[in-house]
């Protein structure tokens, strides 16, 4: 009896060894449903995007995908959950810009280096937007006025240390002007406040001001991208107006470290196919997402430079931990 067990166990061990060596090419994955962690709450922009992408990915993965919202801590809690997940490939996570802006503030003890990036999904540039009846018609006017009237113009953003706060700070740093940064609880209230005339400008994304621009309440002075926005081809970029800044908020997928590369390949393949699917592309167009795919290597490089840039700007804004 005992011998039999020993025999069986060793057989299993050998089998396991063999499959793990030869099976590298094609692991039997996934055998159960995959979980995707979303660090932002259900119904928000990130969540809706992730759910749309996951729904398409299910078709290519052959297994269902559950989106779990692990929110709080300004996104830090969800990011930590991704990092600490079991690296068996059954947990994927969405990482967002905040992964690079929380560490300089001393709010999370980990960085992008603690993840194995899978792919970048989108990168949305901020736009400088003012009221329709504002005297400014381009970024140059705006900057010129700000130079002669230091600390007079109030620019709204989506929160202290948020991506759009940093965007405005970057603009001010590059042009050497002094403005007032007014943080709101998200981009929507900032835009509303601008429409009501309580502040002079906002530095949020095109998608977030689109409704009011189309309604004729606001106008965009420039976008911080290296190409014009397809929705507003008449709006020049900052670069075209002589201010060489580009800046993006981004979202992407990442795995905890130490996931088997073969499993990673299966996942990235499935998500890429979903990304390219007609349904997802149509969805992105509807919600005004600036899709910007990058594969794992490019995304990793991007993360590195982005983290450096963000930290540098945050220092000048006084947002880093002293």
């Amino acid at each position: 009896m005992r011998k039999k067990i020993v025999f069986m166990v060793s057989l299993l061990a050998i089998f396991g060894l063999v499959t793990s060596v030869f099976g590298q090419k094609k692991p039997d994955f996934p055998r159960k449903s995959v979980t995707v962690i979303c660090p932002w709450s259900a119904g928000g922009g990130t969540d809706v995007l992730l759910r749309a992408l996951s729904k398409e990915t299910e078709k290519f993965l052959g297994q269902s995908i559950t989106v779990v919202n692990n929110t709080g801590g300004g996104g830090g809690i969800g990011h930590a959950a991704i990092m600490n997940a079991n690296p068996d490939g059954y947990t994927v996570g969405m990482i967002t810009f905040e992964l690079n802006s929380l560490p300089p503030q001393g709010l999370i003890p980990f960085t992008y280096k603690d993840y194995d990036p899978l792919m970048r999904i989108n990168a949305d540039p901020p736009a400088l937007t003012v009221k329709k009846d504002s005297p400014f018609n381009n970024v140059k006017d705006f900057i010129a006025y700000a130079k002669t009237h230091p600390s007079e113009i109030a620019i709204g953003n989506s929160g202290p240390g948020s991506v759009w706060h940093i965007a405005a700070g970057l603009m001010a740093q590059q042009t050497g002007v002094k403005v007032k940064y007014v943080p709101y609880d998200g981009a929507a209230p900032a835009v509303t406040s601008l429409v009501g005339g309580h502040i002079q400008a906002v530095s949020v994304s095109v998608a977030e001001v689109r409704a009011q621009v189309d309604a004729g309440n606001l106008k965009i002075l420039g976008v911080m991208d290296n190409k014009r926005d397809p929705l507003y081809p008449n709006v020049p970029t900052f670069k075209e107006q002589g201010i060489d800044v580009t800046f993006y908020t981004w979202r992407g997928l990442a795995l905890p470290k130490k996931v088997n590369p073969a499993i990673k390949a299966i996942l990235s393949d499935a998500f890429k196919k979903a990304f390219d699917s007609q349904e997802f592309q149509a969805f992105a167009k509807k919600v005004g997402l600036n899709l910007a795919y990058q594969n794992d290597k490019d995304f990793a490089k991007f993360l590195e430079t982005n983290a450096k840039d963000v930290e540098a700007v945050m220092k000048t804004l006084g947002l880093t931990k002293k």
């Binding site: 503030q105 929160g159 202290p160 943080p183 609880d185 947002l319």
Partner: peptide
């Protein structure tokens, strides 16, 4: 987090 300066 303080709503204006982001200080915890």
């Amino acid at each position: 987090l303080d709503p204006i300066s982001g200080y915890p």
